[in-house]
């Protein structure tokens, strides 16, 4: 059921650790999702959307030297579902992003898939 939910979904991964990014990408592809992009830095949203729609984004809060909150806000503006996947506590989220989907590292694959399926399903519109 979950597998079916993610099947064909176009997903972007923002993760600055290569191994984790790769691991995550492999897991999602195994679940039938299409990983549109994997990036260790904050990408251009317009550039990503130019390649096609995005169903969900997995975001690590700390991307090397930069922080991904502004990118998350940009996603909010574009009504693109996302989930934080991070080693930080949920309490570190700024007020306007508190309450957004959050997965604490280390997370098992099933949990990541479940959260992604949920935010895609409850996507507005």
């Amino acid at each position: 059921m979950i597998g079916r939910t993610l099947r064909g979904r176009r997903i972007v991964i923002l993760e600055d650790d290569y191994f984790q990014a790769h691991d995550c990408k492999a897991m999602l592809e195994q679940a039938g999702a299409v990983v549109v992009a994997v990036s260790a830095t904050i990408p251009s949203l317009d550039g990503l959307l130019a390649k096609g729609p995005i169903d969900a984004v997995l975001i690590d809060i700390n991307l090397g030297d930069s922080v991904s909150f502004d990118f998350a806000r940009l996603l909010v503006c574009n009504a693109i579902p996302f989930a934080f996947l991070t080693g930080y506590d949920a309490a570190m989220l700024p007020d306007d992003l508190a309450g957004r989907a959050y997965i604490s590292k280390p997370a098992d694959h099933a949990r990541v898939r479940a959260v992604l399926a949920e935010i895609i399903a409850s996507r507005p519109g």
Binding site: D17, Q20, T86, Y88, K105
Partner: peptide
Amino acid sequence: HRVRNLIG
């Protein structure tokens, strides 16, 4: 964060 990241 670091520890969790490391474990990940």
